[in-house]
Design a protein around this nucleic acid. Structure first.
Lengths: 159, 159
DNA sequence: ACGCTTTAAATTGCACACAATTTAATTGTA
DNA sequence: TACAATTAAATTGTGTGCAATTTAAAGCGT
């Protein structure tokens, strides 16, 4: 029984060689790792990110939050409605530009911040890398992300 | 108007400092970047990963695929049913152990591989990093993922 | 002022992820 | 051999992500 020699195409479709899969499965693991601590605050991981953005700056439009998190209104609108239903944020139409919806924190939303500050500290260790490693990894990932986004935007330009 | 000095807690909840967000938003960008090329094959990104696993080895159980991709039956069962409906795979109960469901490729599924081989080549450039960078980044991410998974499993052990 | 284009959110529809539960088959153990 | 515990998938329910479309408001060009 003769075995076929490894071909070039073998290495092309090996899961273990995929950087994309490393990113994908690490992202899933991240949200799973955050979940127990965030559910103690009543938040999902994407909801937590939105709250972080709002704790940095209030009175932001849906688009501004979307630019920060790379998410569109199709994702954010229902998510923000849930945060509003939890009484963490308010949503009101802009007065100068009525197309915009301005998002603000409620008192509950503002006070949740104190509890949220414990989360990154608690999770930090689980990553199992030094702060310097984390920092350089973060930079490399964000560069790559921006490259990927640029490649998407270039691709579908009209000729 | 006096501004408050930056406190330690400021840096704790800064989105720009979050490694988790770098991973999260890069993962989203990855699936967006793959989407146009994969939809030409009729696949989503997770479906593509399942096919890659099956191109490496046929006749795998749902759990075996799940172990490889870190996904559970709640995600895989409906995904595999879709691949079956597309006539790319077959699902049949195991004969030795009837709890298992064995996944195999159809001829269409097997022949799709040739087209799929072009995908990583085409996307590769969009990452905008060297092969060596990609390799070390991949290793670091997988290590971190395994650390995260280990931390989850340790946490909810019974005392 | 009139339309035309652009823009901001919302909506619709589909496909993940995952916690929690259920169903059914297998294993372990008295 | 009974029978409790475990295991493999499936199911249920919730919450994303995102493409595509819709709705309504703003800009803008004559």
């Amino acid at each position: 029984m003769k075995k076929t020699a490894p071909t070039a195409s073998d290495s092309l479709l090996k899961l273990d060689n995929f950087l994309c899969f490393a990113i994908y499965s690490t992202a899933n693991a991240v949200t799973r790792a955050y979940q127990p601590r965030l559910s103690a605050l009543g938040l999902t991981y994407p909801q937590y990110l939105v709250m972080v953005v709002l704790w940095e700056e209030e009175n932001q439009t849906v688009s501004a939050i979307g630019d920060r998190l790379n998410l569109d209104s199709g994702t954010l609108t229902p998510l923000l409605k849930r945060l509003e239903a939890m009484d963490l944020i308010t949503r009101r139409r802009g007065t100068v530009d009525e197309r915009q919806v301005l998002i603000n924190l409620t008192d509950s939303g503002r006070s949740l911040r104190a509890k949220a500050e414990a989360v990154p500290l608690a999770i930090g260790k689980a990553f199992g890398c030094t702060l310097e490693d984390a920092k350089s990894l973060r930079t490399e990932l964000l560069d790559m992300r921006d490259n990927l986004i640029a490649s998407i935007e270039t691709r579908d330009q009209p000729a």
